[in-house]
Design a binder for these strands. Structure first.
Lengths: 89, 89
DNA sequence: TAACTATTTAACCGTTTAGTTAAATATAAT
DNA sequence: ATTATATTTAACTAAACGGTTAAATAGTTA
């Protein structure tokens, strides 16, 4: 859970997730959307992968990244539930 | 929004929020729950305040902290909504 | 006024973070 | 085999982070 929040704490990584919400993308396609170097993006992807927010599939020369919506939603809604039940013992 | 995710990325701060979910607490009461120094807690509270996740009221010698549930819930559910509507244009 | 208490601010320190460029790896194409 | 391409890994750097102790601030009490 800490790794997920850590992953979400960076705006570049949140934008990567938003991109992947629409479609799977290669590392290069993702990098094109930013003004930072490809190695920097690669590291961001690694952090997202570590948090299991994305997964990668190797396809020839490319790596295709896709979002793992389940982990994202379950972590956030799990956390939010802590703050929604008003009268709990 | 970035400040909220940054604030949530630290486990001590998430635990502070969980404590404040149950009741308002003074800075000292909060600090008692942790093994770190009071100045460290004070800084964490500052970050939470900066993100508007908590607010503080001065009462005599004490400062009473309370959670701002609205900001927490609206930020997280706002972000989650980005990932829930499947077919959006 | 002086002493005590709760909390924050200041100054510092080691670690982590987010970026860089250069080199390595792995696959594809000629 | 050589060259080109996509991506990652390595080595480095500056800034941010999370902690510490000591000092400052502000309110209370004797």
């Amino acid at each position: 859970m800490s790794s997920v929040f850590k992953a979400l704490s960076d705006p570049t990584r949140r934008k990567i997730l938003a991109l992947l919400r629409d479609r799977d993308m290669t590392a290069g396609e993702i990098a094109e959307q930013f003004d930072i170097s490809k190695p920097a993006i690669s590291k961001h992807l690694d952090i997202l992968k570590e948090a299991e927010l994305v997964s990668a599939e190797k396809k020839g020369l490319y790596r295709i990244y896709s979002i793992n919506l389940t982990v994202l939603q379950e972590t956030l809604s799990g956390f939010m539930n802590l703050f929604e039940k008003e009268n709990e013992e």
